[in-house]
Design a protein around this nucleic acid. Structure first.
Lengths: 158, 158
DNA sequence: TACGATAGTAAACGTGGTTGACCAAATAGT
DNA sequence: ACTATTTGGTCAACCACGTTTACTATCGTA
């Protein structure tokens, strides 16, 4: 077993991962604001992504995001209030309330994907494509269990 | 300029960085709980680190963490309540209230550093030391501006 | 038809953040 | 020395996001 390298303290790695995440998300939202979506918050893009093109329900959204159905419902309320999601009745089941992305939400989603692609290109231009590929592969190896768990505020705060 | 690789969509990179961060922090706290610190939350370790061995004040802590002095004060209150921090008067300035790490807090801090070192070793055993070094170097290149900004819940939620 | 499972909502609460207002103590200026 | 400003801390009100508990309404089935 290797010995801890004093020049590479273990606590730096999580901070660097967080800083990388934060940098990408901040850059994304700076560009989104320039392109007409200043209200979109970091969380919202992931929620829109989780709703998807086909729509879903609050309960299913909660399962996808790893949060309770109540929390998912409140988040949907906020996104509805700013015009990125809409609710509709399900004609085949009066209990369900379909959640759908509005045209404005779809625009934000499409722009987010494009901006993320451009940001990744910036990383490959600076670091080289192989390094970025390696980073993604290695993170997938070490962290696949936490893929798409978005309850960040509650998780981090406690 | 490179073209977006459909096999490497840009949105995966931030999710993987977040998943990596989350994996390390979850592993840390699982081990901390086993070693007698089950109350320590993800945020708390970073706050203890920011207080440091010499102690500080709530206002200065807020500046270090990138949050308001009021938010820093409330966080200190909570850590005082669980025994990781203590307050003391400053004999040289009656306005200031020194915040210091308690022995229990110091124990948690020391264990956190050791656990982070062990977790990094696990990564180097799986991925190879060069790959982990490269990941750290590359993240430092791309994200140095966001080193140690810990206002995660407020930033992410909005 | 009656019952259990499911979708959604409401209420109360905890954590972490913000701004605005305020007080007390230290410091600077005349 | 006496104001005036700055600084450290706290309080109150509020927002975002999450939780658990409790409840209603509807669906599907025995």
């Amino acid at each position: 077993m290797a010995t801890a390298d004093p020049a590479r303290p273990g606590f730096a790695l999580p901070l660097l991962l967080l800083a990388g995440f934060r940098t990408l998300i901040d850059d994304l939202h700076a560009e989104l604001a320039r392109e007409g979506h200043p209200e979109l918050r970091p969380l919202h893009g992931f929620v829109l992504q989780a709703v998807g093109a086909d729509g879903t329900t609050a309960t299913e959204l909660g399962q996808r995001l790893g949060i309770s159905k109540q929390a998912a419902g409140k988040t949907v309320d906020r996104l509805v209030a700013v015009g990125y999601l809409e609710r509709a009745d399900d004609p085949s089941d009066a209990r369900r309330r379909l959640v759908r992305v509005t045209p404005r939400g779809a625009d934000g989603l499409r722009r987010s994907a494009e901006i993320f692609d451009r940001l990744r290109e910036r990383w490959t231009e600076t670091l080289g494509p192989d390094r970025v590929d390696a980073m993604e592969d290695d993170l997938l190896t070490m962290a696949s269990a936490n893929w798409f768990r978005l309850d960040v505020p509650g998780w981090f705060g406690g």
